[in-house]
Nucleic acid binder design. Structure first.
Lengths: 107, 107
DNA sequence: TACAATCATCGTATATTTACGATATAATGT
DNA sequence: ACATTATATCGTAAATATACGATGATTGTA
């Protein structure tokens, strides 16, 4: 399959690449799961709630919820603050801000 | 694991649910793949290019590229316009707009 | 110290995604 | 009609994601 026409010239440049792009894609991936999206929504409306609250709210097991929380933590979208034996979760506003501004670079 | 404290009151409401939420999550999922994100970037800078251009640009096979294009098409982020034997691809501006405004509902 | 509560991690089964070569389809040109 | 070009789809193998129960780790309390 040979392609005998030329690629159109780029009409513009895009200021995202490398590690930033990788991070952005990882965030999209994290948000591209119904359960994790639901967790994000729950944390927006219930900032500072603990894992057990999220477990109660979701239709899945505690172990699975913990895994999803880890994914969201790893991309930096949420943060957990130790509070005795529990953990208070909330959005990481700085990361969310970064996310929003990087999306605007493309769309 | 019994949870003897009460869930904090919601501090706000979120105006996304149902089919819209499902669609938004599907878009996040589509963008949460490095190859598909690269395709989106390429289409921003090279609107109207054909599949063969994208195949040339990417380090993967034609069949795989076609699959990724289908995913992006199915969530409505891109559109293909038949042009003889080839297909001109470009972003669906309306969908991108929808995507941006729905993200703003949450973040 | 023992126990209960909260959460994370381990091991593992199943489902989904990603990738490829081979093949089918559709349009164009000879 | 036949070959060529461009793309999509099929079948399938390998990798990754998702889910669960069981277990481990940590904190607070009796």
């Amino acid at each position: 399959m040979v392609n005998n026409h030329s690629i159109p010239e780029p009409c513009c440049t895009l200021d995202i690449s490398g590690a930033d792009q990788k991070r952005l894609v990882a965030m999209f991936k994290a948000l591209g799961n119904p359960i994790r999206f639901e967790i994000m929504k729950f944390l927006v409306t219930h900032p500072g709630c603990i894992t057990a609250d999220i477990v109660d709210y979701l239709p899945i097991a505690q172990a699975t919820t913990s895994q999803h929380l880890r994914v969201l933590r790893e991309v930096g979208l949420i943060e957990g603050v130790v509070d005795g034996p529990a953990i208070n979760y909330h959005l990481n506003e700085e990361t969310v801000c970064w996310f929003r501004s990087n999306i605007e670079l493309i769309f």
